[in-house]
Every structure is written in C-alpha cells, then in structure tokens.
Simulated scan of single mutants.
Amino acid sequence: MANRSEIKKGKRKKKTLKILGSIIGILLLAGAGYAYYVYSSVKDTVGKMHDDSEWSGSDKRDDELNLSNQDPISILILGVDERKGDRGRSDTTIVVTVNPKTNSMYMTSIPRDTRTEIIGKGTQDKINHAYAFGGTKMAIETVENFLDIPIDYFMKVNMESFKGIVNALGGVTVNNEKFGFSYEGHNFPKGSLNLSGEEALAYSRMRKQDPRGDFGRNERQRQVINSIIDEGAQLSSITKLGEILGVMGDNITTNMSFDEMKEIQSNYKGARKNVQSLEIKGRGGKINGIYYFNVSDEEKKRISSLLKEQLEL
C-alpha cells in the first residue's frame, strides 16, 4: 500500500502532466499533450513566452471573459518569419474559436493576400501587411475588424520553430491526398508521409505549385498542426520535452498566462476531438498591378455569423 508521500508525489506528477498538456496542446491549437517534466520548468517556460504588452483582451466583448464558466474563446495564431532587423509578415493567420459546451473547435485560415482595411493605418492592403506595419496589436485589430469578432488571445509563432518542435516529437505524419510535388529540395508524393521538421516546414509552405494557391497551403498547414497535436497527445512521443520547451520559449509569444492555460486545459480540452475547418471564399485579382484576394461583404458576414454562433455572441 502506498504511503502518504508516494500519494502526494503521484498527484503532483499528474498535475504536471496536465499543465504540460496545456502548453503543448493549447499553444499548438488546443491539443492536450502529456509528458513527464518538472512543474517549475513548465511555469518558467510559460513565463518566458508570456507578453500582454500589446494585447490584454478585446474591447469587442460586452462582458468580461470567464474561463471558469467555460465561456467560448478565440485565439489568433500568427505564423511569422522574423529575421534580425526585420519584423517580417504574418504569412500564417489562423483564427481558432473554441466552444467547450459543444466540445467543438473551428479553425479559420485567412489567406495572406486578403484585401482589407488595415486598422490604425487607414488604408486598404493585404491582411498580412498589418503585422509588418504595426506588430501584433495592429494585426489583431485588423483581424477583429475583418471578421467582426473579439480576439481573446494571440499566439505568435516563429515558423522556423516548427522544425525544432517536429524533430523533438520524432516527426509527424500527414496524408497528402491531392497531388505529389517537390519543394525546397524535398519530394512529397501522394499518400501517407512521415515528415521531419525541415520537411514539415517545406510541406506547409509550398503555394505556387498548388492549383488552389493559398487554400491548398492553408490546408497543409492545418494538417501539420493537427499532426503535431496528435503526436503531442501521445505520452510515448514526449521523450525530449526539455528540447520542446526550449523551442517554445524562444519562438512563441502569447498573452495567455500560466493560470489561464491551466484553466483552459481543465475546461476546454474536449474540443480538440471535434475540429472543423472554415474556408473563406473569394476571388483573386489585380488592383494597380498588385494581386489581392477579394472577399465580398456577403462572405464576410457568412463567416462572421458562424464564428459569432460558435462564440455565443
């Protein structure tokens, strides 16, 4: 029979696993990964990633968000390629809306060339330019205006970090159903593919060879993200957690606090089992020689209505 010390140690271990699941999962689109690691290291990593200086919450909510009451939430994922001396652009923009009451999660990718008003700039431009012009705050406000919904949390991810996370997980598996292609020196035939970090990044970046352009690329990005979630949820795959936490701490920024992550892990984790992708429809065309993806007012209202229903607004 276990003594009191062993029982307390076991409870502490379970708590650590749950919080690790929150980080690996929620930071990688609401997954629930579990792994062995000390509680203090996890908390330190979250502290390193936490930054609410640019966004502390949306003004578009009438009532304050309450995670304990399982209020539906929205998370903006910004995938950026930052280089020294260059802020870069948000070439990946995904809005995740999670409703724990219906155990559902929507992933809505906004094409990078989408023409919209850049809030704070007063001009019409490609939505991915908002981050280049005004950083995280301008990017969030522009997305809020485009979709007419509040953004509660953001996660800014340096896309190069995908390589380190995937490698630490031992690779990811995707199903390339559409067509075979080669990109950046890597071959991706049709069928099930086991990808290393470098291959996963190339697989998710290719656009010009895809007949669907940004839509095809967005779909492949979601495939890789979902595969990371699945791998992170398997205890057997977390053998290099220190490496994963190191990559996250250096390459992910979020306004989500450690306590909020714990709350979300506890009350929202069931939603990852029911993930739906929403596709924004529109037409490509040039204005003054520049290519844009144009979305009609009717389409914006359609997407906005779906997201508002998901968020119970």
Rank of each mutant, 00 (worst) to 15 (best):
Q234D: 12
V157W: 03
R212Q: 12
V174Q: 01
R217V: 13
I151Q: 07
N226A: 12
G170L: 02
S182D: 13
S182W: 07
G246K: 14
I225S: 11
N218P: 10
L195M: 05
G249V: 11
L241G: 15
S266D: 10
M159A: 05
G191L: 08
M155F: 02
A202T: 04
I165N: 01
E160K: 10
R220Q: 11
F181R: 04
N251T: 15
Y153H: 07
F188E: 00
G170W: 01
K163G: 00
I252N: 13
L201W: 06
P189S: 09
S266N: 13
G249I: 12
G270F: 09
I228K: 04
N267I: 01
G213L: 07
S277A: 14
D250H: 07
N145C: 01
A202E: 05
G197K: 01
D230M: 07
K273P: 02
G213M: 08
N194T: 08
G197M: 05
R217L: 11
Y203M: 06
G232L: 11
M159L: 12
S257Y: 12
R272I: 13
T253D: 10
E219F: 07
Q276F: 09
E260M: 11
R205I: 10
F188R: 02
I149V: 09
L245P: 15
F179M: 11
E219K: 12
V275G: 11
E263A: 15
R217S: 13
F258G: 09
A233E: 15
N167Q: 03
G232M: 11
K208G: 06
V172C: 11
A271I: 01
K190C: 02
R212Y: 00
F215H: 14
A233Y: 02
S161G: 10
S182A: 10
G242E: 13
Q221I: 09
F215K: 14
K156P: 07
D250V: 05
E177W: 06
G242S: 15
S161K: 04
D148I: 00
S196V: 02
L201S: 01
F154L: 07
D210Y: 00
K178F: 10
V172F: 04
V166D: 05
I244G: 11
S196L: 00
G216K: 03
N158C: 05
I165F: 07
D210C: 04
E199S: 00
E198I: 05
G246L: 12
I165S: 02
D230C: 00
G232Q: 08
T239I: 03
I229F: 09
R217D: 14
S196H: 00
F162L: 13
S196G: 03
G185T: 04
K262S: 08
M206E: 05
K269P: 01
L193C: 04
F188C: 03
S227H: 10
N176T: 04
K273C: 03
S192L: 09
A200D: 00
T239S: 15
L241Y: 08
D230K: 15
K269T: 10
D230N: 15
R205Q: 14
A202L: 09
N175E: 08
R212C: 07
E219Y: 06
V157K: 03
T173L: 04
N167C: 02
L245A: 11
D148N: 13
V247C: 02
L193A: 06
I225P: 09
S196K: 01
E184Y: 05
G232E: 10
G270Q: 13
S257I: 06
I244S: 14
I228V: 15
